[in-house]
Design a protein around this nucleic acid. Structure first.
Lengths: 153, 153
DNA sequence: ATCAGTGCAAAACATTTGCAGCATG
DNA sequence: CATGCTGCAAATGTTTTGCACTGAT
Protein backbone atom coordinates (compact mmCIF):
# COMPACT_ATOMS: atom_id res chain seq x y z
CA UNK A 1 0.00 0.00 0.00
CA UNK A 2 1.24 3.42 -0.91
CA UNK A 3 -0.48 6.54 0.27
CA UNK A 4 0.20 9.99 -1.04
CA UNK A 5 -2.08 12.01 1.17
CA UNK A 6 -1.44 12.31 4.81
CA UNK A 7 -4.51 13.84 6.36
CA UNK A 8 -3.35 14.54 9.87
CA UNK A 9 -6.00 14.71 12.54
CA UNK A 10 -4.20 17.66 13.96
CA UNK A 11 -6.35 18.30 16.97
CA UNK A 12 -5.27 15.24 18.90
CA UNK A 13 -1.64 15.92 18.20
CA UNK A 14 -1.94 19.39 19.72
CA UNK A 15 -3.63 17.88 22.74
CA UNK A 16 -1.01 15.17 23.01
CA UNK A 17 1.78 17.69 22.71
CA UNK A 18 0.30 19.98 25.33
CA UNK A 19 -0.18 17.06 27.70
CA UNK A 20 3.34 15.80 27.19
CA UNK A 21 4.77 19.25 27.79
CA UNK A 22 2.77 19.68 30.99
CA UNK A 23 3.84 16.25 32.17
CA UNK A 24 7.46 17.14 31.49
CA UNK A 25 7.05 20.05 33.87
CA UNK A 26 6.91 22.86 31.38
CA UNK A 27 4.90 25.94 32.18
CA UNK A 28 2.10 27.11 29.95
CA UNK A 29 4.08 29.66 27.95
CA UNK A 30 2.12 31.64 25.40
CA UNK A 31 4.77 31.41 22.74
CA UNK A 32 5.06 27.67 23.10
CA UNK A 33 1.35 27.01 22.68
CA UNK A 34 1.21 29.34 19.68
CA UNK A 35 3.92 27.27 18.03
CA UNK A 36 2.25 23.97 18.89
CA UNK A 37 -1.06 25.21 17.50
CA UNK A 38 0.55 26.42 14.34
CA UNK A 39 2.40 23.15 13.78
CA UNK A 40 -0.80 21.21 14.32
CA UNK A 41 -2.41 23.05 11.42
CA UNK A 42 0.39 22.42 8.90
CA UNK A 43 -0.04 19.85 6.18
CA UNK A 44 3.69 19.46 5.74
CA UNK A 45 7.03 20.24 7.33
CA UNK A 46 7.88 23.91 7.99
CA UNK A 47 11.14 25.70 8.61
CA UNK A 48 11.77 27.75 11.74
CA UNK A 49 11.70 30.94 9.71
CA UNK A 50 8.41 30.05 8.06
CA UNK A 51 6.97 29.42 11.48
CA UNK A 52 8.21 32.77 12.75
CA UNK A 53 6.68 34.45 9.73
CA UNK A 54 3.35 32.71 10.01
CA UNK A 55 3.13 33.69 13.66
CA UNK A 56 4.07 37.29 12.98
CA UNK A 57 0.98 37.82 10.89
CA UNK A 58 -1.07 35.36 12.88
CA UNK A 59 -2.08 34.67 16.42
CA UNK A 60 0.91 36.12 18.19
CA UNK A 61 4.34 37.49 17.51
CA UNK A 62 7.10 35.13 18.67
CA UNK A 63 10.81 35.87 18.71
CA UNK A 64 13.05 33.91 16.43
CA UNK A 65 15.20 32.52 19.22
CA UNK A 66 12.10 31.26 20.94
CA UNK A 67 10.96 29.45 17.83
CA UNK A 68 14.27 27.60 17.68
CA UNK A 69 14.28 26.89 21.40
CA UNK A 70 10.75 25.51 21.38
CA UNK A 71 11.39 23.37 18.32
CA UNK A 72 14.45 21.94 20.02
CA UNK A 73 12.41 21.04 23.12
CA UNK A 74 9.66 19.52 21.02
CA UNK A 75 12.19 17.46 19.16
CA UNK A 76 13.78 16.24 22.37
CA UNK A 77 10.36 15.17 23.65
CA UNK A 78 9.77 13.42 20.32
CA UNK A 79 6.77 15.60 19.60
CA UNK A 80 8.14 16.83 16.29
CA UNK A 81 10.59 15.39 13.84
CA UNK A 82 13.20 17.42 12.09
CA UNK A 83 13.92 16.74 8.47
CA UNK A 84 16.42 18.22 6.07
CA UNK A 85 15.83 17.96 2.39
CA UNK A 86 18.89 19.66 1.05
CA UNK A 87 18.22 23.40 1.09
CA UNK A 88 20.44 23.90 4.13
CA UNK A 89 17.35 24.57 6.18
CA UNK A 90 15.82 22.26 8.74
CA UNK A 91 12.08 21.65 8.63
CA UNK A 92 9.87 20.42 11.42
CA UNK A 93 6.59 18.51 11.51
CA UNK A 94 4.35 16.95 14.15
CA UNK A 95 5.38 13.46 15.15
CA UNK A 96 2.47 11.27 16.19
CA UNK A 97 2.95 8.79 19.02
CA UNK A 98 1.14 6.31 16.79
CA UNK A 99 3.91 4.76 14.65
CA UNK A 100 1.51 3.99 11.82
CA UNK A 101 1.37 7.71 11.15
CA UNK A 102 5.01 7.76 10.10
CA UNK A 103 5.73 8.85 6.56
CA UNK A 104 8.67 9.64 4.32
CA UNK A 105 9.10 12.43 1.79
CA UNK A 106 9.32 13.13 -1.89
CA UNK A 107 11.12 16.28 -2.98
CA UNK A 108 10.51 17.67 -6.44
CA UNK A 109 13.87 18.93 -7.70
CA UNK A 110 11.97 21.09 -10.16
CA UNK A 111 9.68 23.17 -7.98
CA UNK A 112 11.04 22.25 -4.56
CA UNK A 113 7.73 20.86 -3.39
CA UNK A 114 7.84 18.59 -0.38
CA UNK A 115 5.33 15.75 -0.50
CA UNK A 116 4.73 13.19 2.23
CA UNK A 117 4.02 9.57 1.33
CA UNK A 118 3.80 6.28 3.11
CA UNK A 119 4.45 2.74 1.95
CA UNK A 120 3.97 -0.19 4.28
CA UNK A 121 6.03 -2.53 2.16
CA UNK A 122 8.97 -0.19 2.40
CA UNK A 123 8.56 0.30 6.12
CA UNK A 124 8.65 -3.45 6.59
CA UNK A 125 11.81 -3.69 4.50
CA UNK A 126 13.35 -1.01 6.70
CA UNK A 127 12.41 -2.95 9.83
CA UNK A 128 14.10 -6.05 8.45
CA UNK A 129 17.27 -4.20 7.53
CA UNK A 130 17.40 -2.53 10.92
CA UNK A 131 17.29 -5.90 12.60
CA UNK A 132 20.16 -7.16 10.46
CA UNK A 133 22.51 -4.30 11.24
CA UNK A 134 24.98 -4.32 14.16
CA UNK A 135 23.48 -1.04 15.24
CA UNK A 136 20.55 -0.04 17.40
CA UNK A 137 18.34 1.67 14.87
CA UNK A 138 15.74 4.19 15.97
CA UNK A 139 14.23 6.70 13.58
CA UNK A 140 14.94 6.89 9.90
CA UNK A 141 14.76 9.67 7.43
CA UNK A 142 14.11 8.87 3.80
CA UNK A 143 13.90 11.42 1.00
CA UNK A 144 13.21 10.48 -2.59
CA UNK A 145 14.32 13.07 -5.11
CA UNK A 146 12.67 13.40 -8.48
CA UNK A 147 10.13 15.35 -10.46
CA UNK A 148 6.44 15.77 -9.83
CA UNK A 149 3.84 15.53 -12.58
CA UNK A 150 4.03 19.25 -13.31
CA UNK A 151 7.82 19.32 -13.54
CA UNK A 152 8.70 16.44 -15.87
CA UNK A 153 11.94 17.50 -17.55
CA UNK B 1 22.63 -9.11 1.70
CA UNK B 2 23.76 -6.33 3.96
CA UNK B 3 27.24 -4.88 3.72
CA UNK B 4 28.80 -2.59 6.24
CA UNK B 5 32.10 -1.87 4.56
CA UNK B 6 32.27 0.06 1.39
CA UNK B 7 35.75 -0.30 -0.04
CA UNK B 8 35.71 2.15 -2.91
CA UNK B 9 38.11 1.54 -5.75
CA UNK B 10 38.87 5.20 -5.75
CA UNK B 11 41.22 5.37 -8.69
CA UNK B 12 38.61 4.78 -11.35
CA UNK B 13 36.27 7.31 -9.81
CA UNK B 14 38.94 10.00 -10.04
CA UNK B 15 39.54 9.03 -13.65
CA UNK B 16 35.85 9.02 -14.41
CA UNK B 17 35.39 12.41 -12.76
CA UNK B 18 38.29 13.94 -14.63
CA UNK B 19 37.00 12.57 -17.92
CA UNK B 20 33.49 13.82 -17.28
CA UNK B 21 34.76 17.26 -16.37
CA UNK B 22 36.89 17.46 -19.51
CA UNK B 23 33.96 16.31 -21.62
CA UNK B 24 31.77 18.96 -20.06
CA UNK B 25 34.24 21.56 -21.31
CA UNK B 26 35.91 22.42 -18.03
CA UNK B 27 39.54 23.45 -18.10
CA UNK B 28 42.12 21.55 -16.13
CA UNK B 29 42.17 23.75 -13.05
CA UNK B 30 44.64 22.84 -10.32
CA UNK B 31 42.23 23.41 -7.46
CA UNK B 32 39.59 21.25 -9.03
CA UNK B 33 41.85 18.26 -9.54
CA UNK B 34 43.16 18.60 -5.99
CA UNK B 35 39.59 18.36 -4.71
CA UNK B 36 38.75 15.42 -6.96
CA UNK B 37 41.88 13.57 -5.83
CA UNK B 38 41.12 14.23 -2.21
CA UNK B 39 37.52 13.05 -2.52
CA UNK B 40 38.69 9.89 -4.25
CA UNK B 41 40.77 8.98 -1.21
CA UNK B 42 37.99 9.44 1.39
CA UNK B 43 36.31 6.46 2.93
CA UNK B 44 33.22 8.44 3.83
CA UNK B 45 31.44 11.73 3.23
CA UNK B 46 33.31 14.94 4.05
CA UNK B 47 32.14 18.49 4.67
CA UNK B 48 33.38 21.42 2.63
CA UNK B 49 35.33 22.72 5.61
CA UNK B 50 36.99 19.36 6.23
CA UNK B 51 38.03 19.31 2.60
CA UNK B 52 39.45 22.81 2.83
CA UNK B 53 41.38 21.79 5.94
CA UNK B 54 42.73 18.58 4.48
CA UNK B 55 43.94 20.46 1.43
CA UNK B 56 45.57 23.21 3.46
CA UNK B 57 47.97 20.77 5.02
CA UNK B 58 48.06 18.55 1.95
CA UNK B 59 48.77 18.76 -1.72
CA UNK B 60 47.71 22.32 -2.32
CA UNK B 61 46.00 25.19 -0.59
CA UNK B 62 42.53 25.86 -1.98
CA UNK B 63 40.27 28.77 -1.11
CA UNK B 64 37.06 28.06 0.71
CA UNK B 65 34.86 29.60 -1.95
CA UNK B 66 36.51 27.40 -4.55
CA UNK B 67 35.80 24.29 -2.52
CA UNK B 68 32.12 25.17 -2.46
CA UNK B 69 32.05 26.10 -6.12
CA UNK B 70 33.76 22.90 -7.22
CA UNK B 71 31.52 20.73 -5.05
CA UNK B 72 28.50 22.41 -6.59
CA UNK B 73 29.77 21.66 -10.11
CA UNK B 74 30.56 18.07 -9.20
CA UNK B 75 27.11 17.65 -7.77
CA UNK B 76 25.49 19.08 -10.89
CA UNK B 77 27.47 16.62 -13.03
CA UNK B 78 26.39 13.82 -10.69
CA UNK B 79 29.96 13.06 -9.76
CA UNK B 80 29.39 13.53 -6.05
CA UNK B 81 26.34 13.24 -3.89
CA UNK B 82 25.55 15.63 -1.13
CA UNK B 83 24.13 14.31 2.09
CA UNK B 84 22.93 16.04 5.22
CA UNK B 85 22.74 14.14 8.45
CA UNK B 86 21.43 16.79 10.76
CA UNK B 87 24.40 18.81 11.99
CA UNK B 88 23.52 21.74 9.71
CA UNK B 89 26.51 20.87 7.55
CA UNK B 90 26.40 19.28 4.13
CA UNK B 91 28.78 16.42 3.37
CA UNK B 92 29.92 15.19 -0.01
CA UNK B 93 31.10 11.86 -1.32
CA UNK B 94 32.05 10.35 -4.68
CA UNK B 95 29.09 9.06 -6.66
CA UNK B 96 29.95 6.10 -8.87
CA UNK B 97 28.29 5.77 -12.27
CA UNK B 98 27.85 2.10 -11.39
CA UNK B 99 24.54 2.03 -9.48
CA UNK B 100 25.54 -1.07 -7.54
CA UNK B 101 27.98 1.09 -5.63
CA UNK B 102 25.17 3.08 -4.07
CA UNK B 103 24.88 2.97 -0.32
CA UNK B 104 22.90 4.57 2.49
CA UNK B 105 24.03 5.81 5.88
CA UNK B 106 23.83 5.08 9.56
CA UNK B 107 24.35 7.96 11.97
CA UNK B 108 25.24 7.25 15.57
CA UNK B 109 23.36 9.80 17.67
CA UNK B 110 25.84 9.12 20.44
CA UNK B 111 29.22 9.84 18.86
CA UNK B 112 28.06 11.34 15.57
CA UNK B 113 29.82 8.69 13.52
CA UNK B 114 28.67 8.34 9.92
CA UNK B 115 28.71 4.77 8.65
CA UNK B 116 27.87 3.66 5.11
CA UNK B 117 25.95 0.43 4.53
CA UNK B 118 24.24 -1.27 1.66
CA UNK B 119 21.31 -3.65 1.56
CA UNK B 120 20.08 -5.10 -1.71
CA UNK B 121 16.74 -6.11 -0.30
CA UNK B 122 16.07 -2.55 0.75
CA UNK B 123 17.20 -1.15 -2.56
CA UNK B 124 14.80 -3.46 -4.35
CA UNK B 125 11.97 -2.34 -2.08
CA UNK B 126 12.85 1.25 -2.90
CA UNK B 127 12.74 0.48 -6.62
CA UNK B 128 9.29 -1.04 -6.24
CA UNK B 129 7.97 1.93 -4.29
CA UNK B 130 9.43 4.37 -6.78
CA UNK B 131 7.58 2.63 -9.58
CA UNK B 132 4.30 2.86 -7.68
CA UNK B 133 4.49 6.58 -7.03
CA UNK B 134 3.04 9.22 -9.39
CA UNK B 135 6.44 10.85 -9.40
CA UNK B 136 9.59 10.40 -11.45
CA UNK B 137 11.99 9.22 -8.78
CA UNK B 138 15.72 9.63 -9.23
CA UNK B 139 18.14 9.48 -6.33
CA UNK B 140 17.20 8.77 -2.77
CA UNK B 141 18.79 9.62 0.50
CA UNK B 142 18.25 7.37 3.47
CA UNK B 143 19.68 7.93 6.94
CA UNK B 144 19.09 5.54 9.81
CA UNK B 145 19.58 7.09 13.23
CA UNK B 146 20.57 5.03 16.21
CA UNK B 147 23.47 3.98 18.38
CA UNK B 148 26.59 2.11 17.43
CA UNK B 149 28.01 -0.72 19.50
CA UNK B 150 30.19 1.62 21.54
CA UNK B 151 27.35 4.03 22.32
CA UNK B 152 24.52 1.82 23.52
CA UNK B 153 22.52 3.98 25.93
C1' DA C 1 44.88 37.53 -25.81
C1' DT C 2 40.80 35.74 -23.89
C1' DC C 3 37.99 34.02 -20.56
C1' DA C 4 37.48 30.14 -17.24
C1' DG C 5 39.33 29.33 -12.75
C1' DT C 6 40.76 30.99 -8.28
C1' DG C 7 41.53 33.43 -3.77
C1' DC C 8 40.30 36.81 -0.61
C1' DA C 9 37.21 39.50 1.85
C1' DA C 10 32.70 40.74 2.58
C1' DA C 11 27.83 39.49 2.43
C1' DA C 12 24.00 36.58 3.24
C1' DC C 13 21.68 33.11 5.77
C1' DA C 14 20.48 29.79 9.40
C1' DT C 15 21.08 28.93 14.05
C1' DT C 16 22.69 29.71 18.94
C1' DT C 17 23.73 32.25 23.04
C1' DG C 18 23.72 36.06 26.64
C1' DC C 19 21.15 38.76 29.18
C1' DA C 20 17.48 41.64 31.01
C1' DG C 21 12.55 41.81 31.81
C1' DC C 22 7.87 39.52 32.00
C1' DA C 23 4.62 36.33 33.83
C1' DT C 24 3.29 31.74 35.54
C1' DG C 25 2.63 28.73 39.30
C1' DC D 1 8.26 36.14 44.49
C1' DA D 2 11.16 32.70 42.37
C1' DT D 3 12.26 30.91 38.33
C1' DG D 4 10.89 29.37 33.96
C1' DC D 5 9.80 31.70 29.59
C1' DT D 6 10.57 35.20 26.20
C1' DG D 7 12.43 38.80 23.17
C1' DC D 8 16.11 41.36 21.56
C1' DA D 9 20.61 41.85 19.97
C1' DA D 10 24.88 40.02 19.32
C1' DA D 11 27.75 35.94 18.35
C1' DT D 12 28.65 31.71 15.59
C1' DG D 13 29.07 28.82 11.79
C1' DT D 14 28.14 27.67 7.10
C1' DT D 15 27.58 28.85 2.47
C1' DT D 16 27.43 32.46 -1.26
C1' DT D 17 28.88 36.47 -3.83
C1' DG D 18 31.79 40.39 -5.74
C1' DC D 19 35.80 41.48 -7.62
C1' DA D 20 40.47 41.52 -8.99
C1' DC D 21 44.05 38.50 -10.62
C1' DT D 22 46.11 34.31 -12.47
C1' DG D 23 46.72 30.79 -15.77
C1' DA D 24 45.07 27.39 -19.33
C1' DT D 25 44.05 27.19 -24.17
Amino acid sequence: MTTMSHQATSHDWAAHATATLAEAGYRRGGARSAIVELLAKQSCARSALEIEDALRTGSRRVGRATVYRVLEELERLELVSRIEVGQQTARYEPLHPDRTRHHDHLVCDGCGDLIPFRDDDLERALQRVSARLPFMVGEHELVLHGHCAGCRP
